[in-house]
Amino acid sequence: MSAAGGVPGSGHEVPGGTWRGISFEDRMATVEFRVGERAHITVDSEVCRSCTTKACVTACPANLFAPTSGGGILFNYEECFECGTCYMVCNHEGAITWTYPDGGLGVVFHQG
């Protein structure tokens, strides 16, 4: 990194100048979440067991869905962007139930 550029820190670059060095935890740590006690996402893992695509696992930008060894889906609602990708890509009616978190809770974007 060039000192003449006046850029502080070394960024998230790894040697070789690539950006893949940001861990997903570090990435999500940049986002404010005011976590409520009520889960605003629910998943019917029974339905997921018959799902062959499990599109939510890769498409969710917050990486909240993980396949279980039993063929179901394990999910986490706490660091959710509230975007709606999961229920829109889900091809099984009723597998993912999605509402907004309670008022004032959930994601708070400052740089949106």
């Binding site: 820190g9 960024g11 998230h12 670059e13 100048g17 940049t30 829109m88 400052h110």
Partner: peptide, 17 residues
């Protein structure tokens, strides 16, 4: 693109439909 961003650090990650 990379030369524009050299040394930049992540402030906030976000997603929306």
């Amino acid at each position: 693109v990379a030369p524009y961003l050299r040394g930049a650090t992540l402030r906030e990650y976000a997603a929306h439909l």
